[in-house]
């Protein structure tokens, strides 16, 4: 197929899978803009680097636009749409020129993919840019499996684990099978499902600090299930939920580690202690 086709320049018009094939045929690398997410940026850079590694290993060129800060969800979910828009406009600009936007978070990816169109519904002039951004935005594991058709990760990670499905990823983006598929061939890793895998952990952004008591009750239900499962590691795809679950496990003195799934998939779990743990020898 001749490479001169103009359609190559109009990526949103092309189905994701087709785009990957076209790029491979053209020997052209996909440019993926990493939406780092504020929690990964501030709290746990190792997740960002794990995501970069997974994307680069899959053949993508990864860029990290410096103008990004946050997706705007805290403001959006608080009803502060003006403030949310201020931040969201930055994201729209920052990622205009990449082929795909990938976030190691179902919550932030869901914000961009499903809620930006709602947020900007009253700005028709921006509709095309918002729709284009939404169309090319993916949660990390979903991007690896659904777009890049990656095979399960190879390697060894001997641990009894369980997986927490974050609400936004699960219900807004259909992230459920993808992380489990990518984990399925890791030697030694056994995944036990807990009954409440799909039940909210009680994080909910500002909810967890505004309604602390209710949030505690919710995360306790999750933590009880985790403890009963015998799992020694909780994996998930969203730092908010993972920090909440880890924090409650630790407060209750339960020796269960919590990690972002990207770290395990990238084989970089040794790069950082588990969430809320220290690598300083006492």
């Amino acid at each position: 197929m001749p490479c001169a086709s103009d359609t190559c320049r109009h990526r949103p018009l092309i189905q994701p899978g087709v785009q990957v094939i076209l790029n491979r045929m053209h020997d052209e690398q996909l440019t993926v803009g990493l939406f780092v997410t504020c929690l990964v940026d501030l709290m746990r850079p190792s997740v960002g680097f794990a995501a970069v590694k997974l994307l680069e290993n899959a053949g993508c060129r990864v860029v990290v636009p410096a103008q990004q800060t946050c997706c705007g969800q805290p403001a959006f979910n608080s009803g502060a749409s003006v403030e949310a828009k201020t931040v969201a406009r930055q994201v729209i600009e920052a990622f205009r020129d990449v082929d795909y936007v990938v976030a190691p978070s179902g919550s932030c990816a869901g914000m961009i993919k499903t809620h930006y169109p709602e947020l900007f519904a009253d700005e028709p002039a921006r509709a095309a840019a918002v729709a284009a951004l939404a169309a090319k935005t993916y949660e990390l594991t979903s991007f690896l499996v659904d777009v890049l058709r990656q095979k399960p990760a190879a390697g060894t990670y001997p641990v009894a684990a369980t997986y927490h499905d974050s609400c936004s990823g699960l219900r807004e983006l259909g992230v459920k099978a993808q992380p489990r598929y990518l984990l399925s061939k890791l030697e030694g890793l056994s995944l036990t499902e807990i009954p409440s895998a799909e039940t909210c952990c009680g994080f909910g952004g500002l909810f967890c600090v505004k309604y602390t008591d209710i949030s505690a009750k919710m995360v306790d239900a999750k933590v009880d299930d985790i403890a009963a499962s015998g799992a020694k590691l909780v994996l998930g795809g969203d730092m908010g939920c993972l920090m909440n679950i880890a924090g409650r496990l630790q407060r209750r003195g339960l020796a269960v580690e919590v990690r972002h799934v990207a770290e395990v998939l990238a084989g970089s779990a040794d790069d950082a202690p588990a969430i809320g743990e220290s690598d300083v020898r006492p």
């Binding site: 780092v36 990964v40 940026d41 501030l42 709290m43 746990r44 850079p45 190792s46 960002g48 680097f49 990290v64 967890c208 600090v209 505004k210 602390t212 008591d213 949030s215 505690a216 995360v219 920090m243 909440n244 880890a246 924090g247 409650r248 630790q250 407060r251 950082a272 202690p273 969430i275 809320g276 743990e277 220290s278 690598d279 300083v280």
Partner: peptide, 26 residues
């Protein structure tokens, strides 16, 4: 690796530990 208490973050730390940031941003 975490805080049991942190001024200004009591909504969080009242019921759970707060992981400490790694020290540098991504």
């Amino acid at each position: 690796g975490r805080f049991r208490r942190l001024p200004g973050a009591s909504g969080w730390t009242a019921v759970r530990d707060l992981p400490a940031p790694a020290g540098r941003t991504f």
